[in-house]
């Protein structure tokens, strides 16, 4: 960087000029550092998964008796209906 005028964000201090030639510099292959980043990313992702609370087991709903064309299903429904009719008669008989 040579001969620049920049505010440098330092209040009332004025930088009149800057002359910085020949800064020590080298370029290296980035792959080792990116490999390190990759290792770290995979580690962090693994850790995040492990730290997530295990989902609570959702209980399976009890199978409801279903309307059925089978004989068992028909008898079940008939039994249920007879029960309801008997209950209704009983309530009428007791004056409720």
């Amino acid at each position: 960087m040579e001969e620049e005028r920049k505010p440098y964000g330092c209040g009332n201090i004025e930088v009149n000029s800057v002359h910085i030639p020949g800064i020590q510099s080298e370029r290296i292959d980035i792959s080792k550092d990116l490999d390190n980043a990759l290792e770290l990313i995979l580690l962090m992702q693994k850790k995040t998964k492990q730290e997530k609370p295990a989902a609570l087991p959702v209980p399976k709903p009890e199978p409801m008796p279903q309307k059925s064309q089978t004989r068992g299903g028909f008898l079940f429904l008939m039994g249920r209906a007879a029960g309801l009719v008997a209950k209704a008669f009983k309530e009428v008989g007791s004056g409720r």
């Binding site: 910085i20 510099s25 080298e26």
Partner: peptide, 14 residues
């Protein structure tokens, strides 16, 4: 340490 095009890392020192 500055990434140069995803291939090199430029290290500058003062």
């Amino acid at each position: 340490a500055t990434d140069i095009g995803g291939k090199e890392l430029e290290l500058r020192k003062i």
